[in-house]
Design a binder for these strands. Structure first.
Lengths: 353, 353
DNA sequence: ATCCTTTCTGTATCCGTTTTCGGAAACTTT
DNA sequence: AAAGTTTCCGAAAACGGATACAGAAAGGAT
């Protein structure tokens, strides 16, 4: 209402101005606004009125400088358009807000250098927790520096959190939130095996990436448990993206008729791309080929994909919760491993002999 | 390396400590670290070494308090798991980083109250720009307060940006980034009409929501332009979500056989849900029913959907760019309207008589 | 009425930077 | 060698809010 057309660049009103208008000291204003102290109803009302009058907004930076925590939580993530990451980010943001924290976000595109830079940036912002999500290919230098960051953050009462990646080592003060990639992949592959499939194409091999390695591991273990040999020719390398799924399958089908009766896609995006590529070759799921994915995210419902469910949003929420809970006290930081379960839709049929 | 196991709660090192170690004044350290001033190579090296030695990290809050801009940009968004929003957010983050800014993020779930609260929060953080994305149902009180926020932000050299929603009024200092909903819907509907379809189901009517209204408008205009009557019975109400698309179509099909030969879904998520529902009733796209969507996002490639392309990420990038460019000078804030184009896939066939 | 609590409020300091202003040192030029 | 430029550096004052400490006011008990 008032200060309707302030000239460009005019400062915003300060606690001192509010104090002056209300006829009290800055200390009183501060206490009333932060709810530190039970002021008398009269002054309280006067101060609130004055603040309203001047459109007073506290300066979070000044507040944080004066000694209180920054009340912010940072998430550093591969990208925000990939469904898995988006859901984790959503969880982080929701929990952060629920705990009265602001959410800072930075993306890395999976580049360790950018990740390191982002963590530094978040450190400058005094984030109460820095949550790292997703895989990176970590060389020794990276691991050293990240350990150092973990130490530094912990030293100032903050916390580093690792989501969906391997811990940095035994004595590194970082919270870890993992999930059972190998177990989920084992269940998914077993599901195909128990339907009689023996030649199962694995889509999305990616050495060096924790998630990919874990899922490949589960796939192999399941085959072995069924007494089947491992065929390296069935393990196709590619990134966890729709286009890659399309590419991998297209390439395979262009080379000749399918030499498999089922597909285990390392995530649902890859499943979606492969599904499309097969459709273009007249191959229908599950009529001609059975398929299982991983994630229980779009596009799995669109194509009726049986897949492994992961509590994506929960991962983000837990990360925030644990970090904030644990930030104060010392001791061993928490390490949780979340379970998975199979979601049956309609992409698997018993193999016809 | 050093300070390997600091006790809990120890403060981080300050510019003063760096200055002391390097044997210079804090002013010199500040200048060297921010690159303000060409210090002599010798002192420069000494300061850098000292900073490294102490693992010095600047305190962004103190820096911002001391008078420089906060170097942060805020995005306030409906959710981050919906593909459209996720892409816009990605664009914002990317551009913010490119311009040396940190990205603050907050979600609202489409609730105007939460949006208002978030903007206030971002104002406390001194964000250099506050970018609002997506529709809300705005009552008068909301519009008043948002106008006031726009004024207040502008008064301190920041900027409010409105993405994909109607401007707040003529004299409100807010940057606006819109896109041509009506035009895109007109093109999409015309595409179906020119294939001979006359009974086109509109999925996703939502009075009060700018985007929904714009697209409905384009749909109607196209019908009228083709000399066809408007049939309210063909306009189905629902939210812009996959589940809603599924629900709307399921309900329709449960009520009886299709009384339409084509579908215009207001976005690709709805198209995906409807596609699935039809599949469950043995109705294939495009064999039995033609369909067009809007967004050119997942799951459109999965189901081969012809759809209207929107430069989602670009919207976010432009928002940041314009806000930052314009933040300094006064004058009329920019207002851009982005165009759309049809992406032809394989979900439309000529109507068989 | 006096003393003791309890409740409320004000003064002054500090948080960690940037930045203005002035001074010293190092070169140039004559 | 003196004067004039540059170039580099330091002292100190902000920035806006929280809080320790002390003091005033109000309320209760004697």
């Amino acid at each position: 209402m008032r200060r309707a057309s302030q000239p460009e660049g005019s400062r915003r009103s300060t606690i001192r101005e509010v104090a002056a208008l209300a006829g009290v000291s800055v200390a009183t204003v501060s206490r009333i606004l932060t709810g530190t102290y039970p002021a008398s109803p009269a002054t309280r009302a006067r101060v609130l009125r004055a603040a309203e009058e001047l459109d007073y907004v506290a300066n979070a930076h000044a507040r944080s400088l004066a000694g209180t925590a920054s009340r912010s939580v940072a998430i550093v993530i591969n990208s925000v358009i990939s469904p898995h990451y988006a859901h984790v980010a959503q969880g982080v943001e929701a929990q952060a807000t629920a705990e009265g924290r602001l959410c800072l976000i930075g993306t890395t595109g999976g580049d360790p250098k950018r990740e390191l830079a982002m963590v530094k940036h978040m450190r400058e912002q005094n984030a109460e927790a820095v949550i790292l999500v997703g895989n990176v290919v970590a060389d020794d230098d990276y691991r050293d520096r990240m350990r150092q960051y973990a130490q530094a953050l912990s030293a100032v009462g903050s916390r580093l959190v690792l989501c969906g990646r391997r811990p940095l080592g035994p004595d590194v003060p970082a919270v870890v939130v993992e999930y059972d990639n190998a177990g989920g992949a084992f269940a998914a592959t077993s599901h195909l095996l128990s339907a009689g499939h023996e030649r199962i194409l694995f889509l999305g091999r990616r050495p060096g990436y924790t998630t990919a390695e874990g899922r490949l591991d589960g796939y192999r273990k399941a085959l072995t448990a069924y007494g089947l040999p491992l065929d390296p020719g069935l393990e196709v390398e590619g990134m966890m993206e729709w286009n890659e799924g399309y590419r991998m399958m297209k390439q395979r089908l262009l080379a000749g008729p399918p030499d498999f009766t089922a597909v285990f896609a390392i995530n649902d995006l890859i499943a979606g791309g492969a599904h499309r590529a097969m459709a273009e070759h007249g191959i229908q799921v599950p009529r001609d080929v059975s398929m299982v994915g991983f994630d229980d995210l779009p596009p799995s419902p669109d194509i009726g994909l049986t897949t492994v469910h992961l509590p994506h949003e929960e991962i983000g929420r837990i990360a925030v919760r644990l970090a904030l809970e644990h930030a104060g006290q010392g001791g061993e930081p928490p390490h949780v491993v979340l379970g998975t379960h199979l979601v049956i839709r309609d992409s698997v049929r018993p193999r016809v002999q």
